[in-house]
């Protein structure tokens, strides 16, 4: 099969790395070659962050370029707009409805675009928008919005739901298993 490309985007501190770790482990268990490229260091501090997940028979590059992603999982609306060009035409964009103002907007030096999701829905892509933050709070903590989004994404990843449940159980800290599984279910049933 051709290599599949998934982009996970958000704001530094939102928990994008756990989502990519879970995916990497899952594709590995399914017997694929996997590469996951992460961002550490300075850009983590509240900046725009991206993680690349690639899987297939043999994966060379760890990064994904414009027009190459099959799926984008976005933790924040503005980041959905920023990374849109990385999605293939007809690709799937799973976007949280959460909005976080970047510093230039806070300072009044730039404007946060209005109605981003409505504008994205008009593009040649499949948009799945969900309020991941509220669902995460419903599950028990705003920190598990990443797992809510993963739950919303799995129907497009072609791997059994039960497999994901097993991977979550074996990857997250034992005390948080129940909350994370609840978050996963809420995301899974959100669309």
């Amino acid at each position: 099969m051709a290599t599949k490309n998934i982009l996970i985007v958000g704001v530094g501190g939102q928990g994008t790395l756990l989502a990519s770790k879970l995916m990497g482990n899952c594709f590995l268990k399914e017997g694929y070659d996997v590469k996951v490229s992460e961002v550490h260091g300075m850009s983590q501090r509240g900046g725009s962050v991206v993680t690349y997940v690639r899987y297939g028979e043999k994966v060379y590059s760890p990064v994904i370029e414009k027009g190459e992603a099959d799926i984008i999982i976005s933790f924040e609306q503005l980041e959905s707009a920023r990374w849109l060009p990385y999605l293939k035409k007809g690709g799937v964009l799973i976007s949280s409805t959460q909005k976080i103002d970047p510093m230039p907007v806070i300072m009044g030096k730039a404007t946060y675009p209005e109605d981003i999701l409505a504008k994205l829905a008009e593009k040649d892509i499949k948009l799945v928008a969900l309020d991941a933050l509220s669902l995460a709070i419903q599950a028990g903590t705003p920190k598990c919005a990443n797992i809510v989004l993963l739950g919303a994404a799995v129907q497009f990843l072609g791997i059994d739901k039960e497999m994901w449940v097993d991977i979550i159980r074996s990857t997250v800290p034992p005390k948080t298993i129940d909350i994370n599984l609840k978050a996963f279910e809420l995301g899974y049933n959100a669309n």
Partner: peptide, 19 residues
């Protein structure tokens, strides 16, 4: 040549900040 959709408005940058 790259084939992709683009967002048609200016997107404010999100530089890293002190926490």
């Amino acid at each position: 040549e790259v084939s992709c959709e683009t967002f048609d408005e200016e997107i404010p940058p999100r530089p890293p900040v002190l926490c």
